[in-house]
Every structure is written in C-alpha cells, then in structure tokens.
Design a protein around this nucleic acid. Structure first.
Lengths: 182, 182
DNA sequence: ACCACCATGTAACAGGTTACATGATTAA
DNA sequence: TTAATCATGTAACCTGTTACATGGTGGT
C-alpha cells in the first residue's frame, strides 16, 4: 500500500476535482484561467486522462444528457482518488533548474549572429515584462482569498523579475561587445 | 527550403559536434559536465538521436576500431547539419514560465498538512542554495573564456537567487500562519 | 577482489503535442 | 453571417525515461 503512483497531470486533475464534480471541458477552462501558470496540458490530454482515472478507481463518472447542447461526462473524485492525491502531495517535489531553449541558443552563441542573439534576449525580456504586468494586475481578491494562490502568483513575479534582471544585463553586455567590435 | 525542423536535443548535439568529431559517449560526458545546466538527456536518448541525425544527412559517422576497449562511432557534423542548426538558433525561442510540481503542491496547499508543505518549501530553498553555491564556486576560467558560458551561469545564479528569496518569504508566511493557528 | 571507466545499444513504457472531426446554440 | 461557446474525442507522431545487457582494462 502506498506504492500507487500518479503523474503531476493526474494530480492536477484530481486536485481540481476535490472542488466538485466537473467535466473535462470545465477542467480545461480552469487550467487555462489560472493563466496556465503552473499547469497547462493540451485538452486532448485531459480527455485521455479522465477515463484512466476512472479505470484506476480514482474517480467516477456519470453522463449528463443535455438538450440544446452536447451531453457531457461529469467526473467525481473517489476516496481512493483522494488518498492517492494525498500521497502525491506529500511526496517531496523534484527540484530542477530551468532548461530553456534560450539558454541553449545562448550557450552556442558563437555560432550565431550577435544581433539575432540580442533580439532573442530582448524578446525574452519583453515577454517576462508582460508576464510581470499581468501578474501584478490580476485579481487582488483572488490573492487575498487564498494564501496558497497568492504564493504561486508571487513565485511567478519573483521569477519574472529575475528574468528581467538577467535579460537586461545580458543585453547590455552583448551590445557592448557588439559596438566595441565595430 | 528552410522548413526542416530539429528539436532542442538535435540542436544541442549538433552544436557540440561543431566543436569536433565525437562519440555518443563523449557527448554525454560533455552534457553532464556542464552540470546539466540547460540540457541533460538520458544517454539512451543520445544513442538514439545520433543515428537519426546521420539518416537525415545532418552528420556522418565512421567506426573506429579499438583494441583493448570497445569500438566506437565518431560523428561529424555535415554542411546540411550546420545549416539546419543555424536555422534553429535563429528561430526565436519559446518563452514559457516555470511549471514546477512544487507550485502545484502549493496551489493545492489546503489539502495538505501545513508542516509538510513547509518541509517542501524548505527543501526547495536548500536545493536552490546548493545550486547557487555550486555555480559560484565553479570555474572562473571557463566563465572568463566565453561570455556566452558566463551568461548562462549568471542566468542560473539569478534564478537560484529568485528561488531563495521566494522560498524564504513563503516559508515565513506559512510558519506564521501555522503558529497563529495553534 | 572490487569498482570505475570505456562504449553502445535494446525494450518497455510514460507522457505529451498537433491536427482533425462533429455539430447545435447563442451573441455581436 | 460570422464567430464563440459548449462538449468530446481519435490518430499520428514525438520526445523522453528507466532498466537491462555486454565485456575488457586499469587502478586501489
């Protein structure tokens, strides 16, 4: 007992299901609405996983017949589902440093036209700034409501700020070298 | 022309191959030695990808017969390989915010014993600190040698610092709420 | 006697993506 | 009339992991 393993996606779905019966459609919207901040699977994946959860006994489903719109499957977490989710939550999370394509491009920067590299870095900065802005302007209510949500938002902010700092200094250095060489 | 696509792993291998003919074994060691900082595939993946690169015309291979140790395949990047790598490097990298399991566990924090959650956060901080230390103490020569390597190292540092800041404040808040409720 | 290094690979599995297919209802 | 919302799924593909298999050489 206790050896049952679930994936992060399984856990995310089960986690959302603790808040009530939902359809795959609902779950996908919830995932997106959180800005896909820490979880964002393709919808086909959601529709693939849900029946698996049922097959493994972690959820039950019932069909709701609707008129005027497509029928839907509603999923409900089971006791076994809660138990296995609990186990997953208690497992120490794996820590690993970022592995972004930008870093790879930078690492092989000697092979690349410096101006293009600078473009890449600039773009990353502007995207980080956009993320920061969107996190800053999002619902103060939602953040006040739950400390946990607030902490995840602040993680995003901290990360965005770090990216902004780093991209700024990287851009400076790259342009400095560029103009020095001309 | 120009529509050929390669993956990040393909690009990483081709990138290393621009530095000279290497075996899969060599390439794996190089990947590991960079601390797996921005790229770290399983060795089975490397051995799977290399023949694919040859099949697609991006590299050539020759067998080196050795006595006293296993024979090896040496791979060499081709002109087509250089071209396709170039294209990949020039493509603007996809930007996406971190998607770490820790965030998911935090987000569903209401379902979890607060003390376990604090343990998770603490562990993340100590791992970030370890990363920071290892980046700070690693080769000053290697960093001086290449600005690009230096920039990737500094990215790691910036990221580690952000994680440390965030985990520290998260831990404080979580413990504060914990003691307040007792 | 044992372990690390050299060197390549196979097999089984897990987890994920994009594109395609369907089709009624409702708001702009 | 055009697009978004509701709602589910299949097919083809890609990327990646862990565990297993083999076997000589050289150092402690």
């Amino acid at each position: 007992m206790g050896a049952a393993k679930i994936s992060a996606t399984d856990a995310a779905l089960l986690g959302l299901l603790t808040r009530g019966e939902s359809s795959g459609y609902d779950l996908q919207r919830e995932a997106e609405s959180s800005g896909g901040l820490f979880w964002a699977p393709a919808k086909s994946r959601i529709y693939a996983v849900l029946p698996q959860l049922v097959a493994r006994g972690y959820a039950t489903s019932r069909e709701v017949i609707q008129t005027g719109r497509p029928n839907k499957q509603l999923y409900k977490i089971s006791k076994a589902g809660r138990a296995v989710l609990q186990e997953w939550l208690e497992e120490p999370p794996v820590f690993e440093p970022e592995r972004a394509p930008l870093l790879l491009k930078l690492y092989f920067g000697d092979l690349l036209d410096p101006e293009i590299l600078i473009e890449h870095v600039r773009r990353a900065r502007s995207e980080a700034q956009a993320l920061k802005r969107s996190l800053e302007t999002t619902p103060a209510e939602a953040r006040a409501e739950s400390m946990h949500v607030d902490l995840t938002v602040r993680h995003g902010l901290e990360w965005a700020r770090a990216m902004i700092r780093w991209t700024s200094s990287a851009e400076q250095e790259l342009t400095a070298r560029l103009t020095a060489q001309v």
